[in-house]
Amino acid sequence: MTPSKTSEPSIATKETLLGGSSADESAESLGIELTDEMRAGVDQNLELLLTQYHTVLKVLTRR
């Protein structure tokens, strides 16, 4: 495989994904109150979405 000419994408974090807020703050702003059980499930899904976002950023920041 030919190495792609990329710049390292800025590493997004979960906060980046949520526009700078925490999951609890973002959920609260939408009127959703997370329980402990939900927080774990939501967090797991945010990890998955973050992986997807990294994949997108990697291509969009390619020179």
Binding site: T16, L17, L18, G19, G20, A23, S26, A27, L30, I32, L34, M38, G41, V42, Q44, N45, L46, L48, L49
Partner: peptide, 11 residues
């Protein structure tokens, strides 16, 4: 539910 909440939080 947890998938939908996570999606709704995206910026």
């Amino acid at each position: 539910r947890d998938r939908l909440i996570a999606g709704a939080l995206l910026s």
